[in-house]
């Protein structure tokens, strides 16, 4: 059982770093390659959503990522302690408004499909984090 925590600048350039780090951890845990790819994509989605949300809120809190490798599951938490937005979505992140709305729907589909459970949890004091759970097969 291993627990790893990271805090990185909440900017698009750093999302790849999180994907690579968690893929490496997943490989160390003995996950098959396809499951590692799925986890990389799901973590990438959670990070992208968090980074874009922070950018829109004008926050500069670090992106916090927590990896818990438990006997029966892997749990990854990705989030930021930023105040929740009250304004409309700002789409100045490089994707036009129609593309951005579409992106959120596609991101939700990927998160729902690629991990066994994806839930949004509220931090005490403000902010949200995504909790991704990947159930591990029982040892033969």
């Amino acid at each position: 059982m291993a627990r790893v925590e990271m805090a990185i600048p909440s900017r698009p350039a750093y999302v790849r770093l999180v994907r690579l780090a968690l893929a490496s951890l997943a490989r160390s845990s003995g996950l098959p390659e396809e499951a590692i790819e799925d986890l990389k994509t799901a973590v990438g989605e959670a990070c992208a959503n968090a980074v874009l949300m922070t950018s829109e809120a004008g926050g500069d809190d670090p992106l916090r990522v927590r990896w818990n490798d438990e006997p029966e599951r892997i749990v990854v938490e990705v989030g930021e302690r930023v105040p929740e937005r009250e304004t409309a979505v700002d789409t100045s992140n490089g994707v036009d408004s129609s593309g951005f709305d579409t992106r959120l729907v596609m991101s939700a589909a990927l998160l729902d499909t690629l991990v066994d459970q994806c839930e949004m949890v509220r931090y005490q004091g403000g902010g949200l984090y995504a909790r991704l759970t990947l159930d591990l097969p029982a040892p033969v």
Partner: peptide, 16 residues
């Protein structure tokens, strides 16, 4: 090597 929803959003925008 890797494609996420942001990339998909760009392709959908280009298609439109």
């Amino acid at each position: 090597d890797f494609l996420d929803s942001t990339g998909l959003g760009v392709l959908v925008g280009a298609l439109k």
